[in-house]
Design a protein around this nucleic acid. Structure first.
Lengths: 181, 181
DNA sequence: GTCTATATTCCGATAGAC
DNA sequence: GTCTATCGGAATATAGAC
C-alpha cells in the first residue's frame, strides 16, 4: 500500500525539524517521492495546509503518548517526557515548537493557532503532572506548577536547539538537571 | 551623516529577530532605505556575509555590555543578564541565537562558526559569573557551573521564543524562576 | 565608491491532462 | 482521484552605469 498523503506529511515533518519551515520547498518533498512538486498541491493546496497537518499529527501523537503513560507514577511520566526526544539528537531534529516559533509571525493564521494549541496542551499536561507529583511527595520544588512547567518545557526545547549549534554535551547536561527534581 | 552599511546591518538584525533568517530578503531591507535590492549586494555580496556581520555586531555588543558590568556584584550582573532582553517583548524580538539555531543546518559555514562563537562566549561568561557568585556566597545551586549556565541560557532563550507563541506571562514567569537562585 | 538594470534560479500555486 | 505542464512572481546574485 502507498499513502502519498501520509508520506508527504512525514517528509515535511522531517524537513521542518532539520532545516525549518521557511527553508524547505515542495520540491524537496516531491523529489524524494519521484513526482513533480505540483503534485503536492493536490494533497495540500498551500504550504500552510501542509504545515497545519504536520502540527496536528504531532498533537495527536503527543496525546496518544501521554495517554499510554496514564498508569505510570508521576516520576516515571516525567522521565519519559524528558527522554522522549533522545532519538532526535543523532538525526539533528528539533521539536516542532522550537522549529516553528522563531518564524511564528510569518506563519499563516491556522498554523499559528495549531501551534498554540500544541504548546498549551504540553504545558497543561506538564502542570498537572507536576501537581500530582508534588502532591504524592515525588517531586520537590517551590515555584507554582505552571512556572515549573514553563521552565522544564523551555529548557528542553532549547537543549534540542543547542544540540544543533554546539554539538556538545548540552542536551544531556540540561536533561540531567531537569531530572534532578 | 548616512551610513548605509550600518543601517543595512541594523535592519537585517531586526528582521532576523522578528521573522527569522530564511524569511527575509534583500528587498525587505532595500525598500526601507529607498534603494534597489541589488544595492545591498555592494555592501554584502551574499546574504551569508550580511548574516555574519549581524552576528559579529551582536558579539561585540555583548562583550561591551559584560565589560561595563565588571565592577558589579555577581548577583547584579546576573540580574542584568536576565533582564537585558526585556525590551524585546513588545518588539516581538527573539535573541539572535534563538532566531538562527533552528535553521542552523541551512546557514553558510562562516555564519555557523560565528554563531557558535557567540554562544560559547555567552556560556563561558555565564559559567564564570556563576562560579564567582557561588564562591562569594551570593548564589546557591548544586549543579556544575557549566550545567547551570546551560540551564539559564536555555530557559531564557525559550522564554523569548514562547513570548511569540503564547503572548502570555511565560517570559516573566521564567525570568522570576531564574532570578530565584 | 555607490547604486541600477538585468539575469537566473527557484518558489508556491493554477489549470488542465490522464 | 492523481498527477504534470506551466505561470507569475520573488529570491539571490552579476555585470555594468553613473
Amino acid at each position: 500500500m502507498k499513502d502519498t498523503r501520509s508520506e508527504i506529511i512525514s517528509l515535511a515533518n522531517d524537513l521542518i525539524r532539520t532545516v525549518g519551515y521557511n527553508a524547505f520547498s515542495y520540491a524537496d518533498i516531491s523529489k524524494q517521492l519521484n513526482i513533480k512538486n505540483a503534485a503536492i498541491h493536490y494533497y495540500f493546496p498551500s504550504k500552510g495546509d501542509l504545515g497545519v497537518e504536520v502540527i496536528k499529527r504531532n498533537l495527536v501523537a503527543f496525546n496518544e503518548r501521554i495517554d499510554s503513560w496514564k498508569e505510570l507514577t508521576a516520576r516515571e511520566q516525567l522521565v519519559n517526557y524528558i527522554t522522549m526526544h533522545d532519538g532526535f539528537i543523532n538525526k539533528n531534529w528539533t521539536c516542532i515548537v522550537g522549529a516553528l516559533s522563531p518564524s511564528f509571525n510569518t506563519l499563516p493564521e491556522n498554523m499559528q493557532e495549531e501551534l498554540q494549541r500544541l504548546v498549551e496542551t504540553i504545558i497543561d499536561w506538564l502542570s498537572d503532572l507536576l501537581a500530582k507529583g508534588k502532591g504524592s511527595g515525588e517531586f520537590k520544588f517551590d515555584e507554582t506548577f505552571r512556572a515549573k512547567a514553563y521552565m522544564i518545557h523551555a529548557a528542553l526545547l532549547s537543549a534540542l536547539l543547542m544540540n544543533k549549534v554546539l554539538k556538545k554535551e548540552v542536551y544531556t547536561s540540561i536533561q540531567n538537571s531537569l531530572l534532578n527534581i
